[in-house]
Design a protein around this nucleic acid. Structure first.
Length: 282
DNA sequence: AGCCAGGCTAAGA
DNA sequence: TCTTAGCATGGC
């Protein structure tokens, strides 16, 4: 296969951009650090190498991945600052913002987010994705629904999916049959999109909210896992029984507002990377 | 090195 | 009707 040429760009941006926190905080699964300190991954299924140079994001991208799309993916527009500006005056959030001011919520592809629910993204890509040779590295694109739907159960399981293989197959079938259009989830309002996702076999509230937050830019989505629950119990909800999913999200909307999900990612990352949150600025 | 995820289902209280 | 174990596998 012919190596794919790279197109270079330097994208200027406002405010801080912390690629390390942004790419490796558990919201994206397709990036890796190169020996020279840059990061290699795929954006909208096209290979890309990035690093920050002052107030510019320097990129090498496959043709077809335009600078505008890279800006969109990394949220190099004002929407990052806007979301932060709407955060409540909150001591815990302030700690996380002080420590990781350049952590940005990525805008990833709905289809990939949908299947990445606990699926092995890398495994599925290696198994069924088109290989790409880019700047001396080999990557694999994430397979389209049509491709995943044609895989056998044994093939899906070979990627480490285990009994979740049938969930992946089910979602792929839904898309192929035209009953589900991942891109439309971003255009529905949050509640409608949440309900639609919950109808899918293998998608519960946590997974639905992850898809909506990381793949559809729905900031109302507040996925709560063990880290978020732990954080909440250490801070706002210390007594009583462990709150269930519904109670947590209602608390989140009331306390964090319309960008609760964006705040969630800050708290999630801080709790995992640093430890128990201090109520004072770090 | 063992526990636990996340969603579903079947079995138990 | 509500709660709980088990599922296949990998990550902490």
């Amino acid at each position: 296969m012919n190596p794919t040429p790279a197109q270079r760009a330097a994208l200027s941006f406002q405010g801080p951009l912390d690629l390390e926190a942004t790419l490796y905080s558990g919201q994206a699964f397709r990036w890796r650090r190169l020996d020279d300190g840059q990061s290699l991954g795929l954006i909208e299924n096209r290979a890309c190498i990035v690093h920050v140079d002052g107030q510019r994001l320097r990129t090498q991208a496959e043709p077809g991945l335009n600078p505008a799309r890279i800006r969109w993916y990394f949220r190099l527009d004002a929407s990052h600052a806007r979301a932060l500006a709407r955060f409540p005056d909150d001591a815990y959030l302030a700690s996380a913002l002080t420590r990781f001011p350049g952590l940005r919520l990525l805008r990833q592809a709905p289809w990939e987010a949908l299947v990445s629910f606990r699926a092995s993204i890398e495994g599925l890509s290696r198994l069924a994705g088109e290989p790409v040779d880019f700047e001396g590295h080999r990557l694999f694109r994430f397979p389209k629904p049509q491709r995943l739907a044609r895989l056998t159960d044994a093939q899906l399981r070979s990627t480490g999916l285990g009994y979740r293989a049938r969930y992946v197959r089910g979602v792929a079938d839904e898309v192929v049959a035209g009953r589900l259009e991942p891109r439309l989830l971003a255009t529905l309002n949050y509640e409608a999109a949440f309900e639609r996702l919950m109808e899918l076999d293998g998608v519960g509230a946590k997974v639905a909210d992850c898809v909506l937050l990381y793949g559809c830019d729905h900031h109302a989505a507040f996925p709560s896992d063990v880290w978020v629950r732990r954080f909440l119990r250490e801070t706002y909800l210390p007594r009583g029984r462990a709150p269930d999913y519904e109670r947590i999200r209602r608390f989140a909307w009331k306390h964090f507002g319309k960008h609760a999900g964006y705040a969630q990612h800050y708290l999630f990352h801080y709790r995992r990377a640093v430890g128990t949150l201090a109520a004072k600025s770090a």
